[in-house]
């Protein structure tokens, strides 16, 4: 017998909800670290430049690509949630919105993946 499941649980609506939470927490924790490293600007120019120099390697490059992908997902998914809540067609069109979101995600991910990916390759 085919399992139909419920309206919500276990379907794409639940998984985007989970990913929205996980990506949100990841971005917030990144932000804490990011504010601390930028605080070195007021320690000394040398301290700041020394720490930024440690970011110029393929491993941090991959993390940077990961950050871009996570931020783009969270941004587009958030916009879809807003349309779902406020647009009169939001509920009826939610399946189509998820497809549009997926296409926009792939398009927006290209520039950072190509630009940062080029750094990763040349630093190898």
């Amino acid at each position: 017998m085919q399992r139909l499941g419920t309206l919500y649980r276990g379907r794409e609506g639940m998984w985007t909800w989970v990913l929205h939470r996980v990506s949100g927490v990841a971005i917030l924790f990144y932000l804490f670290a990011h504010v601390v490293d930028q605080a070195l600007l007021n320690v000394s120019p040398e301290a700041y430049d020394r720490v930024i120099d440690t970011y110029r390697n393929p491993f941090v490059g991959l993390l940077e690509i990961g950050l871009a992908v996570v931020v783009i997902f969270h941004a587009l998914n958030g916009l879809r949630i807003i349309l779902f809540d406020f647009w009169s067609q939001g509920v009826a069109r939610q399946r189509q919105m998820l497809w549009v979101q997926t296409v926009l995600f792939l398009v927006l991910a290209i520039p950072p993946v190509v630009a940062i990916g080029a750094h990763v390759v040349e630093e190898l």
Binding site: I52, Y55, R56, E64, A68, P111, P112, A115, I116, H119
Partner: peptide
């Protein structure tokens, strides 16, 4: 900061 014109470079 990360994409255009060399980004982090």
């Amino acid at each position: 900061m990360h994409v255009i014109d060399g980004g982090l470079d």
